[in-house]
Amino acid sequence: MGAPWLLCVALVLDAALGEPRWLWSRAPHPAVLMGQAVDWVDQTLNHGVARRLKGAVATGGLAVIAVALGLAFSVHWLPEVIIVAILLAQRSLVDHVRAVAKALRFGVAPGRRAVAMIVGRDTGGMDKQAIARAAIESAAENLSDGVVAPVFWYLVGGLPGLILYKMTNTADSMIGYRTPRHGAFGWAAARLDDVLNWIPGRMTAALIALTHGGLGKWDEIGLDARLHRSPNAGWPEAAMARALDIALAGPRSYEGEMRTFPFVHASGHREIGPVQIDNAVRALWRSWAAMLAGVAILALVIG
């Protein structure tokens, strides 16, 4: 089975089954194992002098392990398609984002608890609009990180490429922060993640725009994307903001400190709530369907 056909099967499997609780309550998820590997190098090497060098060595070592695992499991199409489906996150993302809309309909407090499951910012002081923005921003960014980027790197590098991406993205999410502990040690992981997400971030924006009649506003999306502190995450967020005609980003709190960030698509609606989160979920599925169609066309073209 060729890689595009295998990917089509994996995309459908992930969308249909998601993350079965019966399985992951009995066995560690590969993402959990990757996280444990990152935590081990962090605890073992992130101290003393030359932390940036140690972090670069650790990132390189994790990358080598990821590629080796990918090669080891690329022996037959059946285990490969299962692994690819496991490492995609469309259904899981949809379920988590939809849960925020459902909780927010019962009140702000349940909405805060639900959105805390998918964002790293402070949620204790959020109002309804802030909860909705956080959920929709997470939907857009994780469509790139959890679906489009894995698809892209699987098509480029097969299972080794996919696992390399997931390992790097996991490392960035754990040690890629500009904090006293990780500013130097996590620098290499953060920069590699930026490189690996450069094309997928823009592909995700294009998928969202394409499925919502927004390709004609690509220049405006690009201007909004550049307001974001991330070189890549701003693209899907800017596209989602324009697709739903809402303002995203803006001020938010991290570790008790309120930080001022500009709004993305500042002229969009700011009085938002569960309805707009539901619209974002529909946008996730429309973008997923367009991507699946593209992969299927590729499979037909190359056989």
Rank of each mutant, 00 (worst) to 15 (best):
W288M: 00
L104N: 09
G250A: 06
P180H: 08
G250C: 08
V9I: 14
Q36P: 02
L87Y: 10
A243R: 05
L298G: 04
L78H: 08
I272W: 13
S92G: 14
L300H: 00
A3Q: 05
A249W: 12
I86Q: 04
I208P: 00
R252L: 13
F73E: 01
A116Y: 07
R252P: 00
H182P: 08
G250L: 07
N232Q: 04
S74M: 10
G111A: 02
A247L: 11
T211S: 06
V156I: 13
G213E: 03
P110C: 10
L71G: 14
W5R: 12
A10Q: 03
V151Q: 01
G268I: 14
T59N: 12
L69C: 15
P79Y: 02
G111P: 04
W198N: 00
L227P: 01
G35K: 12
A103P: 06
A63L: 15
D39V: 10
R286L: 13
A189Q: 02
R21M: 03
G250P: 05
A290K: 00
H182E: 09
L207C: 03
K102N: 13
G2I: 06
G120Q: 12
I136T: 10
V264I: 15
M126F: 10
A50F: 14
D122T: 03
L298K: 07
R229P: 00
H96A: 12
A189K: 04
A283D: 01
L78K: 07
W153V: 07
Y154W: 08
H47W: 15
G146T: 03
V49L: 12
A15R: 13
H47E: 09
V281T: 03
G48S: 08
L143A: 11
S253D: 13
R286I: 01
G183C: 04
L13F: 04
T211V: 09
R242P: 11
V38L: 11
V195R: 13
V115T: 09
P274E: 11
A101V: 09
Y254D: 10
T123I: 07
I118R: 08
A205P: 06
W40V: 09
A37R: 11
R270D: 01
V264T: 15
